[in-house]
Design a protein around this nucleic acid. Structure first.
Lengths: 132, 132
DNA sequence: CTTTTTGCAAACCCTTTGCAAGACA
DNA sequence: TGTCTTGCAAAGGGTTTGCAAAAAG
């Protein structure tokens, strides 16, 4: 099934590019809709998912929360602030050899992995300090 | 807030212990309810979450899926079959030093991490082979 | 008695789906 | 034209919440 190059696709990709930090599909929807009120929520969800599957954008699956998208497609990990929900990149080297190790240990054919950190972001650390 | 020792707590912990492999909260609910029809779904969700927070049981957060629980509390990783949804343990050594590295790279105070593998389980590999 | 918990049902969030109308190639 | 895609609204899965009644300490 050849994939078509629709206006919405452009708009959504562009919208994602402008939202700096790991927006959720709904945030992209809200943003895009300000300039293009006609666009449908389902289209945004479908398109982001499609682009992510094609590898054109990154998808960050968050434990217990909405998926987030990233206009940069290269693999990297993320931290999530357990106080405010903020998500940031973690520029730690990508784990090497773990997939093979996991394959050996489990018998699965491993296709990939997700590593997510939990923690408290600098801003929330500051709040804690001042309120304590 | 002192935590009380209720009948339901016992029943739920016991129910989890009997379900072998990483049941979801709803699976625990269904199982528990066979012997104790009066128990409420919300109670099961609340209790499992509570026990997990207390560290008495393990919680496996699955990308894009229901949380799963584990009566064993020690830290280990998991694989999820992208075909059938099955979840298994992966007995690979727990990552050492990544939390510190992530803290350094991000400025967060890191409290933990989650590593999840995706792949195809042995059974599904067999299906693929035979149907191809 | 006081405070935590429970059970119920309804609410909630995030996402997907069915389907007819519309847009691409 | 053929078939992808869209938009809409509704359904869906998983989990949480408000609240009065019940139970624990």
């Amino acid at each position: 099934m050849p994939t078509r190059n629709t206006v919405q696709r452009q708009i959504i990709a562009e919208g994602l590019r402008r939202l700096a930090n790991h927006p959720t599909a709904d945030e992209v929807y809200e943003a895009v809709r300000e300039e293009h009120p006609g666009i449908g929520r389902a289209t945004v969800y479908r398109t982001l998912s499609l682009l992510a599957d094609e590898g054109q954008i990154g998808r960050v699956r968050i434990n217990n929360g909405a998926d987030r998208f990233d206009h940069r497609a290269f693999e990297h990990y993320h931290v999530r602030c357990t106080h405010c929900g903020r998500v940031d990149d973690v520029m730690v080297p990508v784990l090497d050899g773990v997939d093979e190790a996991a394959a050996g240990a489990s018998g699965y054919r491993i296709t990939g992995h997700t590593l997510q950190f939990d923690g408290v972001c600098p801003a929330c650390q500051a709040c804690e300090a001042s309120s304590a």
